[in-house]
């Protein structure tokens, strides 16, 4: 066992995918000699050569568009979009083709689109967004996001091995979060949530960067004698509704947490499913703790925008006090 950061776990997962399958290709902006702006692809070009790990021109739509052609040719493309806020030029290719090509042609497209996402890094505009709901809304895509180094390794292995396209959101504020693990760590199937912390009074449902925030809230709550169960969705699409419902049937209360704005956010899907499928056991309305309904704010104000442990605990208190 050693202390492994999420950045290291993803880098190792990419290296192992390149080793396992000669058809795996990694490309994008600055992923070659630089090793990516976050160094996630560090050393990969040196080890696997410029044919398999390569820099592309700066054009997100074409980065995804060529992935479609390469996948048709039999490759497993793992393109990187440098930042969440730069994925929009590729939106048409992802939604019109990556998601729908199999449905149109019967040909599977094993493409894994890696996207660092989320805020809390003090960045300028377009570098802190959480666009996951756009993609989770699109049938034909799978959308996943890890919260821990071990899950990052295993989930990325599953994504690259999957015959269908996966959007792999990496919580960039957690790139340096550490975990005591051995790599390679266990495979993590797509579509399975996990209980990050067991509890009995309120289910806190989170994914990506907010899992750690929810765990902080749970530790604080414990001091006050309140028991929170933290669920890490890991996969937004497909969604492991069963794990969520089983938890809510136990706790009777749910708080959903994400960084993306609350309006039309992925939390609405969770809240709707819980409200519909576990209505009979709920003792409080499902609460959502999420970003404000504004464009992501300037860095000076991001702490006020992002869900933190205090806001989660306020929602927990309200749920416990309800009725």
């Amino acid at each position: 066992m050693s202390s492994v950061t999420m950045a290291k776990a993803i880098n190792t997962s990419l290296r192992d995918a390149l080793r396992k399958n000669p058809k795996t290709l990694i490309f994008g902006e600055d992923v070659g000699p630089l090793g990516g702006v976050f160094r996630i692809t560090d050393g990969l070009q040196k080890e696997f050569g410029e044919d398999r790990v390569f820099d592309t021109p700066l054009a997100e739509s074409a980065i995804i568009g060529i992935s479609v052609g390469l996948a048709l040719k039999g490759f497993r493309p793992v393109p990187e979009i440098q930042f969440d806020g730069f994925i929009y030029p590729a939106f048409d290719q992802i939604v019109s083709h990556v998601a729908k090509y199999r449905n149109r042609s019967g040909v599977p497209l094993p493409i894994t689109i890696r996207v660092p996402f989320g805020g809390n890094i003090g960045a300028v505009e377009h570098h802190s967004e959480s666009p996951e709901a756009y993609f989770a809304h699109t049938a034909g895509l799978k959308v996943v996001t890890p919260a821990t180094p071990g899950d990052a390794y295993g989930l990325l292995q599953s994504a690259i091995e999957d015959d269908d396209p996966v959007v792999f959101f990496e919580p960039k504020s957690r790139y340096y979060l550490k975990e005591e693990i051995d790599l390679p760590s266990a495979a993590v199937p797509i579509g399975k949530a996990k209980i990050s912390r067991e509890g009995s009074q309120v289910s806190v449902i989170a994914y990506g960067p907010t899992v750690e925030t929810a765990l902080q809230a749970a530790r604080s709550a414990e001091q006050e004698g309140i028991s929170l169960e933290v669920i890490d969705l890991r996969s937004l699409s497909p969604l492991d509704t069963e794990t969520v419902l089983a938890s809510v049937r136990k706790t009777h209360r749910a708080v959903v947490v994400h960084e993306a704005p609350v309006f039309g956010g992925f939390g609405a899907e969770i809240a709707a499913r819980i409200s519909h499928d576990a209505f009979d056991v709920l003792e409080a309305p499902v609460a959502r703790v999420a970003g404000l309904n504004i464009p992501y704010p300037p860095a000076r104000f991001e702490k006020l925008y992002l869900p933190d442990a205090d806001r989660i605990l306020q929602a927990v208190d309200a749920a416990l006090a309800y009725g």
Partner: peptide
Amino acid sequence: PVATQVPHAVGFAMGSRL
């Protein structure tokens, strides 16, 4: 969607060359 197939073709051709 007009022109969206053009990068697909280029990707396939890049694969053929690889």
